[in-house]
Nucleic acid binder design. Structure first.
Length: 500
RNA sequence: CGCGGGAUGGAGCAGUUUGGUAGCUCGUCGGGCUCAUAACCCGAAGGUCCCAGGUUCAAGUCCUGGUCCCGCAACCA
């Protein structure tokens, strides 16, 4: 059976992780955890994108070599994810030796397959920003949008990728959902792009970018960062599985990784749709993969704003995952604060739309959902179980099994669509059903009237249900799911304490 | 006509792909309960689904035109 392969973008190393990165990574983490528990296993890949002129500039600003700079930052990223209990299976750095070697092999093979060609062209180059600008970006008077100076025309010879040879095929794959793009609006957007004349052959090597992977057959050039970046999804997998690639046909290599390749779901933000939906499949086809070996689904999400405004340092409305997590660690009194944020981002942001995040909203959701609904329901049932000495009672195994299957069947339908919002609401509904059941049954009256058998019957049902629900919560709130089970096993404690 | 996102009861949001009684959370009001974290349950009020046309037996949902907000300036997913 093939393992579920989920990826996040690799994050560009020009700063510390923020909420947006956290969101992508957490969605991937939830999917991975779910499939490890309920499916044929998972392979969860994340990492850092370390090449490019911007990184080199930033490094020199702080007086470090690019390598030393990225060593430091990528370590920080890695430890951030580890502290937030992100269960990645592999963390790739694009400066890793195996990756640079693979990227070189990729461009070499693209050349052998006739997918790239040399071309001389005139480009506009702004000295002030040390970057190329396109004509459409120019301000009135032909000035660089950032520097108010006139860009110079430079002549460069680069290697160009024959995107025009593949765009029709890619469009058909997207139209027929062989390559699925979610949500629908993003799919439409990509199809629109593919019809536009702007989608042309483009340069995949650079002369002026020195902090990059050298083109093996052209010593003046480095590989365009997007070839470098996108192929992380493949190089990381190949490396992690210990597969040898040199002197081997691409189909032959694929054979060795079919238990994981191709990606089932690739998480990405709306700003990098074009690269993942158009360039990436085109590159893979050019490399010699067939249509069934392409990524299955791109899940495109929106951005977070805070209080309706874009988060910015000057507005002082930045919400960082580390601070929220630490704040709720204090409140809960265990290292489960991160679960609160995990829950929040899932419930707040429909995948695809922008989401709003403020400390007030997080607190509101914590109080109403986690404290009043979930925490309180566990407390109610456990309180009665203790009082009536029925803590260890459960439904008969075969009945338990039946109930679990019915619940898993429904929850699975949501998860297979990556509908985390629907999944969480289903979990909440189940919890609410128990609450309403208690009102209906009135166990306290049963106890008063000495109807012990009936009391035991209902409590066994609720306790069993809570155990099954704890399993459902595990991908969303891993640490809290463990606490739920510990409480059900008879340990004392409070799941989600109220904020006083 | 640069590109994209949005407009649904007081607030925040689902629902629009595949048209068919307008739904959720919070808030408000009334009632109930006591197993529980002043939690929980029941009920009620509150909506021209931005506007104007159109298609249809039927439109929040499809079509046409318009209005108003918000991103595209790197702390960018």
């Amino acid at each position: 059976m093939k393992r579920f392969f989920v990826t996040t973008p690799i994050y560009y190393l020009n700063g510390a992780p923020h909420l947006g990165h956290y969101y992508s990574t957490t969605i991937a983490d939830i999917l991975a955890r779910y499939h490890r528990k309920n499916g044929a296993g998972a392979f969860f890949l994340t990492g850092t994108d370390e090449h490019g002129q911007k990184v080199a500039e930033k490094a020199s600003l702080v007086g470090l070599s690019p390598q030393a700079f990225t060593d430091e930052l990528s370590t920080e990223w890695k430890s951030t994810w580890q502290n937030l209990d992100i269960s990645y299976d592999h963390f790739i750095r694009t400066t890793d030796d195996y990756h640079t070697a693979f990227a070189q092999e990729v461009i070499h093979r693209l050349r052998e397959n006739g997918a790239i060609y040399e071309k001389e062209y005139d480009a506009l180059y702004c000295v002030g920003s040390e970057s190329f600008v396109s004509k459409s970006e120019l301000r009135e008077g032909g000035l660089c949008p950032d520097h108010d100076e006139e860009p110079q025309i430079v002549n460069e010879k680069n290697w160009f990728f024959k995107l025009t040879d593949y765009k029709d095929q890619v469009r058909r794959l997207i139209e027929t959902d062989v390559l699925e793009i979610k949500p629908q609006s993003r799919k439409n957007e990509v199809l629109e792009m593919l019809r536009s004349p702007d989608i042309q052959d483009f340069s995949v090597t650079r002369e002026r970018v020195t902090w990059g992977i050298p083109v093996p057959f052209d010593e003046n050039q480095t590989i365009y960062v997007w070839i470098d970046a996108l192929f992380n999804y493949m190089s990381a997998l190949i490396h992690s599985q210990g597969i040898e690639t040199s002197e081997r046909d691409i189909q032959d290599i694929i054979k060795d990784i079919t238990d994981i390749w191709a990606p089932d779901v690739q998480i990405l933000g709306k700003d990098i749709v074009k690269f993942h939906a158009i360039y990436w499949p085109a590159f893979l086809l050019a490399l010699g993969l067939n249509e069934t070996q392409l990524p299955k689904k791109l899940l495109v999400h929106g951005f977070f704003v805070s209080g309706g405004r874009k988060m910015s340092k000057s507005l002082g409305n930045i919400v960082t995952p580390q601070s929220v997590s630490a704040e709720y660690d204090q409140i809960i009194g265990a290292s489960r604060g991160n679960d609160v944020l995990r829950y929040y981002v899932v419930i707040e942001m429909m995948i695809g739309n922008d989401g709003d995040v403020t400390p007030e909203r997080i607190q509101e959701v914590y109080q109403s959902d986690l404290v009043n609904k979930i925490g309180n329901t566990y407390q109610r049932v456990l309180g009665m179980a203790r009082k009536y000495d029925l803590l260890t009672t459960r439904m008969a195994p075969e009945k338990q099994e039946k109930l679990a299957q019915a619940i898993q069947h429904k929850s699975q339908a949501y998860m297979n669509q990556q509908d985390l919002y629907g999944y969480v609401h289903y979990c909440l509904d189940l919890t609410g059903e128990i609450g309403r059941g208690i009102e209906l049954v009135k166990p306290w009256e049963l106890a008063k009237n000495g109807q012990d058998d009936e009391l035991k019957y209902h409590l066994s049902k609720w306790l069993t249900a809570l155990e099954i629900i704890a399993d459902l919560w595990e991908p969303i709130m891993p640490a809290s799911a463990i606490e739920m089970k510990s409480l059900l096993a008879g340990n004392q404690g409070m799941l989600f304490p109220r904020i006083s």
